[in-house]
Amino acid sequence: MRASAPLTESKAPSIPLLQRAFQNHSFVALLYILPSLILLVFVVGYPIFYTILLSFYSTPAISPDRYWVGLSNYTDLLRSRTFWEATKNTLYWTIPSTFGAFLLGVPAALALNQTLLGRSLLRSVFLIPWVISTVAAAYVWRWLYHSDFGLINGYLMAWGVSQRPLLFLDSTDLVIPSLVLVNVWKTFPFVMVMTLAGLQAVPSELLEAASIDGAGTVRRFFAVTLPYLRNVFLITFLLLFISNLEHFTIPWLMTGGGPARSSQIWVIDIYTTAFRGLAFGLASAYSTLVFGIVLLFAILYVRLLTRREGVEG
């Protein structure tokens, strides 16, 4: 008697192509991000591409046409005194702004990580500068700094600290430190929040053990807490650095780049070159150069982030 063929040898029913595709996780993931990707391509990708393309052209104000000039815009830019002035101002603005935010934000986070009376209220209060609109903050600080009717000068002169008003925004020496102070005030809550989040990952047993072993507060911070915060600091620093590098609002609204271009940073220079000077080709080259520099930092940020995830995984 012939044995019947085992069931396992019978052919499996064919699965439609679309159904097979939906069973592929990568394909499904791609479909989820497709709408955003399309939007990104049109709203971000195309302008970036067009800006880079335009950077190789000259767009004289007197003509509707554009003219191929190759790398001339880039060489003109790198040879111009005003570009290097703006670069110096940008670094003078960015680096102290970033470090300043850490100088305020980290101690604030450490303090708020302790058991304090009114801790929740304090956390909310310290967040206020971050949530206030940058435009409103810039205008308010402009009034505070005003050398004729600003509160700061008013009190300094009333208390006899100064006989004449200090030219916070009208002095080439004081203008950037004054703007940096505003930016630090505005951004330290971000550092504080990131640090607070990082502090939650520090095992309390280690801190207790270190305390039992006789380590003081400072020693505990450097020996136990800081290693856990290192990656958080790095990522926060990079994010803040990138943000400050391309910041526009505070210097533009408070000084317009003055006095005598002493607060003219890259982004303001790009704006005025394009929309005052109508030199869209040159502004595009400027923009592309700055974009390239910022992109380097962004790549660094992503690499650090993925390295961190790889370590944690």
Binding site: A61, T272, L278
Partner: peptide, 24 residues
């Protein structure tokens, strides 16, 4: 009445004033 008027009036002239008044 030239297309470069905005650049001249809003950038070059004020910068000239600043350069002189700040004694740069």
């Amino acid at each position: 009445v030239v297309p470069e008027s905005t650049q001249i009036m809003n950038i070059i002239i004020p910068e000239m004033i600043h350069n002189a008044l700040t004694r740069k």
